[in-house]
């Protein structure tokens, strides 16, 4: 049984290391003690206003994200890919895209099916997977990474393949399936996702940074 002063000193921070460890061990299994601690936090918390806010360096958030691990759907995808890889020996990007195909329940690939896995610079996990079904004139996109920042949208573009400028394909959210106008040449085409104002680029051309890119590859293989 803890003395009442111990919860107070724990919150103040002056218990010594062994007292502190012992107290925390009790805290985990003693709701009354936890309530006592919460009361002391509430009593002393007005003092927090006396401490001036300080912006932390920009790199800290990235390290926090590394520590908390990849998002759940990327974990699932990686798991799926590793199972798939066990059965065959394939290029991992194509494997990822094919697995995802099942996830988005697109009809099985027919003639004129292209896939792209979009990644950011230095990223080891895919951010988007896109499939282009030329026969049905459909583009299917699935986001695997984090959502666009608040008040921003991700927009998908086709680049290269003889295009003289990026061709807008639409704003992409978590998952979407959209009819495609004439997509033009597929060979040598890259897909890219840029960050745009909410609702998409006001100019019809990318205005924000291009975050993710991936090459379109034919499912049939060439």
């Amino acid at each position: 049984m803890a003395e009442p002063e111990e919860a107070a000193e724990y919150v103040l921070g002056t218990l010594d290391a062994s007292e502190r460890a012992a107290f925390e061990a009790r805290l985990a299994s003693d709701p009354a003690l936890a309530a006592e601690v919460a009361q002391w936090q509430r009593r002393l918390s007005p003092l927090d206003d006396e401490t001036a806010p300080v912006e932390p360096p920009a790199g800290v958030y990235g390290r926090i994200l590394e520590r908390i691990g990849p998002s759940d759907n990327v974990v699932q995808l990686k798991r799926a890919v590793s199972i798939w890889r066990g059965a065959t020996a394939a290029v991992s990007a194509i494997a990822a895209a094919l697995i995802l195909f099942l996830v988005v329940r697109t009809p099985s690939p027919e003639k004129g099916m292209y896939l792209a896995v979009l990644q950011g610079e230095n990223a080891n996990a895919p951010a988007f997977v896109a499939a282009v079904d030329v026969g049905r004139k459909m583009v299917v996109v699935r986001r695997l990474g984090d959502a666009a920042p608040t008040d921003k949208s991700y927009e998908l573009w086709a680049l290269g393949g003889g295009r003289d400028k990026p061709q807008p394909l639409g704003v992409v959210d978590a998952a979407m399936r959209m009819p495609m106008q004439d997509m033009g040449p597929m060979d040598g085409t890259m897909l890219a996702v840029s960050v745009e104002p909410e609702g998409g680029s006001p100019t019809g051309q990318p205005t924000g940074p291009v975050m993710f890119t991936g090459k379109l590859l034919s499912v049939e293989g060439r």
Partner: peptide
């Protein structure tokens, strides 16, 4: 989590 970090990081870093 990103929003929470943006809203609280300066306060916690100050502390």
């Amino acid at each position: 989590f990103g929003e929470l970090y943006a809203a609280t990081r300066a306060k916690l870093f100050g502390v």
